[in-house]
Design a protein around this nucleic acid. Structure first.
Lengths: 207, 207
DNA sequence: CAGAATTTTGAACACCGTTCAGATTTTCTC
DNA sequence: GAGAAAATCTGAACGGTGTTCAAAATTCTG
């Protein structure tokens, strides 16, 4: 086998091993020595295909994000109104975070040093997720610009994420599934009712 | 000095040292050996007053939570309407998270093992924070029960936290202060407009 | 103040990510 | 295909981590 192919295979094997480790023991389940054994290489070989374990973690997390993207893409139907679509998306997100608990926690548990930013290609994968929310936003706010919708999509995603993730980690106390799901339903309903009035600034529009 | 007092002093000194370490280098700035030197004791002495470093971290994070609690207590005024109060609270939260960046990140970066829960007393400190949101909620939703308001307060806190924290860590890409602040303003306005209709279930209320 | 009980100590342990000189393999040249 | 050169892989070793525990130092007791 050509060396380039071997490199590619080792990369893939390592990501596979890392993903398996994450889904069993979370982000801290990624250990250089264990990965090397699982992928059938020496510890040092990891550093031939990845600069460090952080880069490997990005690969694992990107897979999780793409998996969520695929799920979200299949949740809404053509005829769904804005409220139905948003509720479906939020609940699908919640279900996904529960079903893929460890993998999903890893996406946000991954801490990067001080002012560092994730790699460009990774942010691209993240950006894809917002597209799903932009669709119902367009019908809910017909007068909005694409830029506005993108910003709002980020806001709504962040808000939903806060509800889901704080519930998931039970940082604020016990949070059963149904309670979180109900919170998401109320939240999306509130957005559909309130957003059209909220995005229009309180200054009286010119006539 | 009596041994009980020495113990208490060592505890305090260690929390002080840990808090200082966190505010300079974040959660990972807490190192057993460095703390021992700063507090003037042996490494092993830490484990006489704390079961492990996790317990020490809870103490540091509780201080941060109490500090936020004090800030939130001073943000709203008697005459504020629901929208003004909620907006002030959200923006104060945002300002706090920026001003105390490292300390605040530590509160949520602290990962606890699998199904473990934070200690009881710590959850009590967290619960205090929701009280601030319950006040404007009571005037916005006069027919709501205290339990409903508490649940909603948790939801709104979680949502605001999602917006603030994902912005803070820049996990979704660059997020300048003004963008986050604007998102919070739109969000709170949307809640005030939408929540009264959203909490009432879609089933027609009996007359 | 002697002796028992307690507290404090810090070297040692197990583990971590990462490195790098040397062994090994692959590639290139003739 | 032989031999040299280049690239790759290897795993012991390094510096770091949280935690432990036998021994030393201290405090309490009668």
């Amino acid at each position: 086998m050509a060396t380039a192919d071997k490199r590619a295979k080792l990369r893939e094997d390592l990501i596979d091993a890392a993903e398996a480790a994450v889904s069993v023991n979370g982000l801290s389940g990624i250990k250089a020595r264990a990965l090397a054994e699982a992928a059938g290489c020496a510890v040092g070989a990891i550093y031939n295909v990845f600069p460090d374990l952080d880069a490997l973690i990005y690969e694992v997390n990107a897979r999780t994000l793409r998996r969520l993207d695929a799920v979200l893409a299949g949740t809404t139907e053509a005829g769904d109104g804005p409220e139905t679509a948003m509720r479906k998306l939020a609940l699908a997100y919640h279900r996904f975070s529960r079903a893929e608990r460890r993998r999903w926690t890893a996406v946000f548990a991954h801490q990067i040093p001080d002012g560092a930013m994730p790699p460009e290609w990774y942010l691209g994968v993240v950006a894809q997720l917002f597209r799903h929310i932009e669709v119902p936003l367009a019908t809910l706010l017909p007068d909005s610009t694409p830029a506005m919708r993108n910003g709002l999509a980020r806001t709504l995603f962040s808000a939903s994420h806060g509800i889901v993730s704080l519930g998931l980690e039970e940082k604020l106390g016990p949070a059963p599934d149904e309670v979180i799901a109900n919170a998401l339903v109320v939240m999306t309903r509130s957005w559909v009712l309130g957003l059209p009035g909220a995005v229009a600034p309180p200054t009286r529009p010119e006539r």
